[in-house]
Design a protein around this nucleic acid. Structure first.
Lengths: 191, 191
DNA sequence: AAGGGCACTTAATGTAGGTTAAGAAATTAT
DNA sequence: ATAATTTCTTAACCTACATTAAGTGCCCTT
């Protein structure tokens, strides 16, 4: 079965007809690494589900410094929620880090789906709640843990990502500079 | 009209019967300042809506240092989402900072309400999405702004809170020690 | 295979914010 | 009112992490 449907089935169960309806309102596309799916300043009109590959969302501060908000690999959803719900230009970029296949839902179609399959309202509620919890945890971690502890937590939480994405992006996600990250890593290897 | 109902009406419209049903599944209580509504280690079984007064949620690190996750005053919802959805013991305390009147919904009742009034599923989806957006913004702010900038942002976002809650809690929310916060405030006043 | 960028490392130096400690001011309790 | 606690301030000193800068390795592209 398709990965999106499997993902939805984790929280709500759709009939075959509903699944077909859902799929008819989505589009699946392939993207090469380095493709930008969304740029800061644009209004986010879509939500993305990753079938394969890796994406990241990030913003750019003072036109110089990038901050990674989120990585998304197989089975994850990603988007710019702020821009999506406010329909205002957002601050996030969404970029393909590793060749990816992505399921795309436009906001328009998502709204229609909410009318036609109210169960999806529940699904996306649960998705938002879970995402909220992990953002809360990350926020508290940033307030109370050292960079080293945050890195360890990252490693145990996303073991596959460490080998696959440039470490400067992991540094950014953790909240340190690439230089400090490199030093910290060397220190950890000595132990 | 009651504040909770007004709050719900911002996103979905209920009939009189639905409103009555909703209210029948809630309980409104008064609490004195310093009351602890939820302690770390407990399973959160309720969500709270603040009619009046001020609450805060926080965790305690290494049994010493408190970190404020959230303030909630009139018209805000508060709870321990992690514990609430996982039904595991949580890390958060919820405390009354200023005598408060609080509308309480148990998880059990909330689940029933989802069945009986599917529109509430949408309401709480929107609530979670909005909360997610503000947590994302705060996370990025913690990564990219200085303490001073975060404080200024806090002031413009929650102007009423500054006079009302002990500044050590604001320091904690911002992510600095009370001592540094005091120094920073003195510096800002000189300008 | 050579050249040009990225990504990573290392090291010197700088700074935002933490820690410790002690006293002053403001609340709260008696 | 007075004592007791909590909150806030100030100041000296400390550290985790940032900045700058230079050098190394390595994937791309042609």
């Amino acid at each position: 079965m398709l990965k999106v449907l499997q993902n939805i089935a984790k929280h709500v169960s759709l009939t075959k007809e509903e699944e077909a309806l859902f799929l008819s309102k989505t589009e699946t596309k392939q993207f090469k690494a380095k493709t930008i799916l969304l740029s800061a300043g644009e209004v986010a009109t879509c939500t993305y589900f990753v079938n394969s590959g890796i994406l990241r969302s990030f913003n750019i501060n003072d036109n110089i410094i990038e901050h990674v908000l989120h990585f998304a690999c197989e089975g994850w959803w990603i988007g710019d929620m702020y821009s999506y719900i406010s329909e205002k230009p957002g601050n996030l970029f969404i970029e393909v880090l590793e060749d990816a296949e992505v399921v795309i839902i436009t906001k328009e179609n998502q709204q229609q789906l909410y009318q036609e399959i109210p169960k999806l309202e529940r699904f996306f509620r649960i998705l938002a709640e879970n995402s909220l919890v992990s953002h809360q945890e990350r926020l508290m971690d940033n307030l109370s843990l050292t960079a080293e502890e945050r890195f360890e937590k990252f490693c145990s939480k996303y073991p596959t990502l460490i080998q696959k994405v440039p470490q400067k992006h992991i540094a950014s996600y953790i909240g340190v500079t690439p230089e400090f990250f490199s030093k910290m890593k060397a220190r950890l290897l000595k132990k």
